[in-house]
Design a protein around this nucleic acid. Sequence first.
DNA 1: GGGAATGATTAGCT
DNA 2: AGCTAATCATTCCC
Length: 445
Amino acid sequence: MDEQARILQALGGVNLAGHSVQGGMALPPPHGHDGTDGDGRKQDIGDILHQIMTITDQSLDEAQAKKHGLNCHRMKPALFSVLCEIKEKTGLSIRGAQEEDPPDPQLMRLDNMLLAEGVSGPEKGGGSAAAAAAAAAAGSPTDNSIEHSDYRAKLSQIRQIYHTELEKYEQACNEFTTHVMNLLREQSRTRPISPKEIERMVNIIHRKFSSIQMQLKQSTCEAVMILRSRFLDARRKRRNFSKQATEILNEYFYSHLSNPYPSEEAKEELAKKCSITVSQVRQHHLSIHQKYVSNWFGNKRIRYKKNIGKFQEEANLYAAKTAVTAAHAVAAAVQNSQTNSPTTPNSGSSGSFNLPNSGDLFMSMQNLNGDSYQGAQVGANVQSQVDTLRHVISQTAGYNDVLGGNPMYSPHGLNGNGGWQDATTPSSVISPTEGPGSVHSDTSN
DNA sequence: GGGAATGATTAGCT
DNA sequence: AGCTAATCATTCCC
């Protein structure tokens, strides 16, 4: 500051102290001093300075004329360099404060969300399978897809608006920026403006515009959320599976009671069988139908475990149902085994039962489960078949002992440590050992 | 209308 | 990544 004043004083006796040069503040006209003619030159310089300082306050035409006049002034080069020097000194304090601000977390959140919702990202291919990833709405395929297309139409509407607006903003921003830059560059011939300053100004402009963009993004997000809650939060709007589907799932569940964890393939198969036949959309790597199945099994397991007593009847029902099939299959298998060599990995050769074709019983289990569960798992599957058979046998009475007496029977599907086993320990469901009739004696906790 | 049933979602765990 | 357990939200059924 002092220095600035000193320089100016030396130059023309005009005291600038306390005034920001770049601020473009108008100074009181210097001729307020007594116009002692002794210094025409001083007066002259004062005038020039004053003109420079107030150049931004004038109308364009006026300024243009003045500028021209200034540029032609003989003292201009000297004055200009001095001003540049001053500027350099004062400029130091200005810059350095805010260079690169870190990305705004809120903005990032908005961006992420827009991307996730498919608003800001690349256009999703019109392919039939593509767009629907987000929409995991339950329900029948038909109204599902109707809701879908409706949703997608609305979403793309939003998307379009968003993009045109964004483009508009960007364009406006660019226009404004170049305009300001031109202006500043133009002025920099008259008053000292460093490129850095121009850059700074551009940054300020960009920041302003991006805050406007943020508003756009925010309202877009809001719109999407509303849309979502209207349509897709039909995610929560559940719909019961068809009776048939539940039946199929229950069949699988109770016939695999000792290990009701369908493999991925089994899930897919089940989903297919349950006629949830919308296009296969991959979520993560799980088809949404598998997800339905997974949900179902998750719920089923937990609810069964929580209150086995309540499900007893159902268990019996399905066990009987499937066991009939099983029995047939076994019968056929026995016949076959006399001619064909057994093909299954004989895990444990459980008792007198040879179940070479057990895999056919429930949706070709060999393929479904054998692959991923292997070893012990195969044992578990065989086990489950045996469970079913035992159950039905005990119910139809008469054959209790064929299998019943075998104490090694308790399932060993996973292990003993608190997993599914504890709760399902079959004695409750299948209870041949408890003697006939006591099947239902098992009450809740 | 109200409770039971049930599909979906979530946090937390492994 | 898949599971359990708790919970939410809707539908079913009396």
